[in-house]
Amino acid sequence: MVQNSDFKAIVPKEIVHSASAGHVQAGLPIPKASRVQIFSPDDWEGFTEEWASSLTGYAIVRRFAGSGDMGLDVAGFTDAAGFSSPWDNFQCKRYDHPLRPADIHVEIAKIIYYSWLGE
């Protein structure tokens, strides 16, 4: 038989903030670090584009969305010459496993292949 001494007293958490109209309408806010984990692929590319645009050193940041992007998701160009000058490519992928070399090789191969074709 369960004894009363086996039960733990329930102590409600102290209210730190009162609910705002926004909380009532939209629910509790999701911490930023948790929010990025639920981004859709399109949201993730948009987030990466916005982040890359905030970096210094890029004259142009361009997003190549969808299939047929030739291995480019978001590219940061150091000047207006685009691909003729140094540039960085940001891949916007989410995997259900830790990143593996095979994951990276495919993306690098796409860029090399389409560069070789002159596209």
Score class of each variant (00 low, 15 high):
K93A: 01
H17Q: 03
R35F: 11
A19S: 08
A80I: 09
T48C: 10
G57Q: 10
Q91C: 05
I112A: 11
A26D: 09
V106W: 06
Y114S: 02
G22F: 08
G57H: 13
R94T: 08
A9N: 09
P101Y: 11
I30C: 05
H97W: 10
F83V: 12
L55T: 00
Q37S: 06
W87N: 09
K13D: 00
I108A: 14
W116S: 04
T48D: 00
G57F: 05
N4F: 12
V106Q: 13
G66A: 02
L28V: 07
G57K: 14
S54T: 13
K32N: 08
V74K: 10
G22I: 05
H105S: 07
Q37Y: 07
E14R: 15
L117C: 14
Y58G: 00
R63P: 01
E119Q: 09
Q91T: 05
A21I: 14
L72K: 15
H97V: 06
I104H: 07
L99N: 04
F64Q: 01
D103W: 11
A65F: 01
Y114V: 02
G76T: 05
F90R: 12
A26M: 11
L28R: 15
T48L: 06
K8L: 12
T56P: 03
G118L: 07
T78N: 02
T78L: 01
P31H: 14
S84C: 10
G82H: 10
V36I: 15
W51D: 00
V106G: 06
E50T: 10
R35K: 14
A9S: 08
